[in-house]
Structure formats: C-alpha cells, structure tokens
Design a protein around this nucleic acid. Structure first.
Length: 276
DNA sequence: AGTTAAACCTGGTTGC
DNA sequence: TGCAACCAGGTTTAAC
C-alpha cells in the first residue's frame, strides 16, 4: 500500500502530536520483517522528537538527557498503517507494535507483516544506515536535476519502470505512482532506460514529481487498507489513469488499458499513449 | 554486473 | 458451498 505519499501523509498526521511525548512502554506483537534490535524495555523514559521521512521510511528520533540519542526506523511494508490515539482498543491480531507515550499510543497495524520497526542509534549508523544506504534522491530534492536524472538512466538497460521501482535513482514511486508517472510522461514502461533521451528524462522526472505531489494533496491512495494516523482514507485512487484499469478505456485516447507483468509486478499502461 | 525469481506473510477475490 | 489459484501498495536475498 504505502508509497511515498502515503508514508508522508501518515507522518504529517502524527508528527506534531507525538513530538515531545515521553515513552512509557513498548508492546511487541508478532514478528515483523526484522527484529526491533533492542530490549523494548530500555526505550521507556526516552522522549520522542519530530518524525522524519526518508523514502518510504519514517524515522522517530528518541532522546534521553542531553546526550543519549537513538530512534526507531519504521517501514509500512505492503499493508502497514500507523495510528496515533489516546486509548487504542486492545491489540488485534494484526497490531504488531505499540509505542505507548504520555500523549498517546502509536500503533503499527500490518496484516502481511512486511513492515518493520527497527531500533538504531542514529540515522547514520547501525541498522538505519544500512537500510537507507541504497536509497536514491528524494523526489523533491533540487539536487536531482533533469540532467542528473538522465545521466543515471543513461547507463542502464533495464526497463524504465524497473528503474523507478528500484528507488536507487529516485525514491518514493511504488507500483501505482510509477505506472501513473509513466503514463503522464507518455513513456512505455518497457522502454530501456538507455533509450530515454534528455528531453524525455526531464519530462519523466517532472511527471514523477507531479504524480507524487498530486497524491500528497489528495491524502494518498486507499486501495484496501491505507489510512493515515487519524484513520482518514486517501483519494488518489479515484484519479488513477491506468493503475488497476486493465481493459478499461484510456482517459486520453479511448484505447484499452493493458496489464503486463514486469519483475513480478503488474504494470498498467496505454499502448496508444505510451511509446518506446 | 545486471536481470530474474523466490522469499517473507495474510486476506480478499475469482473461478471451477 | 468449498476449495484452489491468483492477486495485492515493498524490499531483500539468492540464483541464473
């Protein structure tokens, strides 16, 4: 579920409220993708800082006293969502992590358990550093110029959609937004990266950005189970031009939207509007 | 090196 | 109705 917009919407929905809270306890449910990496009891007494986002990860800084710092790196996986509330109900079978604080409980619900909460001493060290190391630019980072984007694509033979999903050039676009951005850019998802010239690279980057910001405005996409930490649905899915629309009319040319499989993931595109 | 497949899980939908 | 097969927003790891 959660691509960059959903993760960012989630972050915004609780960051201000949890900042300054003190951790009172941690409850662990079933195992997630990785173990927490510390004794949960040791987190009590830390105060929570302002949640940050890097790619599809959230970073919750923790601090005790002047110089004792660490934090939790959170990933929502495929089906995860966070809720921050005063008195959450008893944990259900998919509630795998609770951070109890003086301002409320941050709860990770994740049926498929591809998500994770990982303790790390800082963003630049330990497990967090290891997980974040392969990530490419933030999509809205001005340092990611059209030229830099083109240079990164140039040397690759992989299909352009695979390169977007890989996230080692630019992070944030998952399966939905990669499909949508490629449609907006008029580029066939199977096109080898090396065949994309400077002009199309520039257009694609602009479309990735436009797609992600539009999704952010709409509060993300809710396909099955995404909610922000207030329990709000996203609305982007109603605007999807190709994702999930196999066999339906292309909104631009009226032709049929097609579904193919690339790297074990569904790709939706319009053969009429998207060219190699 | 670079691409592809398998793996981690559960649940919903589809089709026989 | 039951059950098998397939599908799902992500990412790492192992295998060609």
């Amino acid at each position: 579920m959660p691509e960059l917009p959903e993760v960012e919407v989630t972050r915004r929905s609780f960051a201000d409220r949890i900042a300054g809270a003190r951790v009172t306890a941690v409850r662990l449910g079933a195992a997630l993708r990785w173990p927490l990496g510390c004794d949960p009891e040791t987190l009590a007494g830390f105060s929570v800082g302002h949640a940050q986002r890097r790619g599809k990860y959230l970073w919750l800084p923790l601090e005790r006293g002047a110089d004792e710092r660490c934090g939790l790196l959170i990933h929502l996986g495929m089906s995860g969502s966070l809720a921050f509330s005063d008195a959450p109900p008893d944990p259900g079978r998919h509630d795998h992590f609770d951070l109890l604080t003086t301002r409320g409980t941050l709860r990770l619900t994740d049926p498929r358990r591809f998500g994770a909460v990982v303790w790390s001493t800082s963003l630049d060290s330990g497990m967090a550093a290891k997980l974040l190391a392969p990530l490419g630019h933030e999509p809205f980072d001005p340092a990611l110029t059209a030229r830099a984007f083109h240079e990164a694509l140039k040397g690759r033979r992989a299909p352009v959609k695979a390169a977007l999903l890989a996230g080692d050039i630019v992070v944030g676009a998952g399966n939905i937004y990669a499909c949508e951005a490629l449609f907006a850019a008029g580029i066939d998802p199977r096109t080898p990266c090396s065949r994309i010239g400077p002009a199309r690279a520039e257009r694609l980057l602009a479309c990735v950005r436009a797609t992600l910001s539009r999704a952010l405005e709409l509060g993300g996409s809710t396909l099955r189970d995404f909610r922000d930490a207030h329990g709000m649905d996203g609305a982007f899915q109603a605007e999807a031009q190709v994702y999930g629309r196999e066999g339906q009319r292309c909104v631009r040319c009226g032709g049929a939207v097609r579904r193919i499989v690339q790297g074990q993931r569904s790709t939706f595109y319009c053969p009429g509007c998207q060219r190699r």
